[in-house]
């Protein structure tokens, strides 16, 4: 399962690669990364068919995660990728907006990687 992680913090990349070391080695998951909403859209433009799931931060400079979500829901509906939103602001309003715009799930920082792993494995099945 190919997962695109969108976050403006570059160190998220080695973190995910290490956290999912075993899964990656066993080809259960495959990660790609984008540092901004714009970069994520450009990536999807090239190879949206490969991507099954998108994990996106909400607060990013430039295009916000919510905007990215709207664009994805608008432009890529066949087949629709799963989108999980991640934010440091786990408030009602953010949650509601994310769900309204069609997010499949909503996670708050700091990320519980065990929980995330569970969720991803559930999605994979």
């Amino acid at each position: 399962m190919k997962i695109l992680v969108v976050d403006d913090e570059a160190d998220v990349q080695p973190l995910f690669l290490q956290r999912f070391r075993r899964e990656i080695r066993e080809h259960e998951f495959d990660f790609d990364f984008a540092l901004s909403g714009e970069e994520a859209l450009a990536y999807l433009h090239e190879r949206h068919t490969e991507i099954v799931l998108i994990l996106s931060d909400i607060n990013m400079p430039g295009m916000s995660g919510l905007e990215l979500l709207s664009r994805i829901r608008h432009e890529y509906d066949t087949p629709p990728p799963m989108v999980m939103m991640i934010t440091a602001y786990g408030d009602e309003e953010n949650h509601r907006q994310a769900m309204d715009r069609g997010a499949n799930d909503f996670l708050t920082k700091p990320l519980d990687f065990n929980l995330l792993k569970e969720k991803l494995k559930t999605f994979n099945k």
Partner: peptide, 20 residues
Amino acid sequence: HEIQNPLNFVNNFSDVSAEL
């Protein structure tokens, strides 16, 4: 918020290092 981000990294990288 600005402190939370680096702290998350500190926690995550130390957790993952223990696993490693």
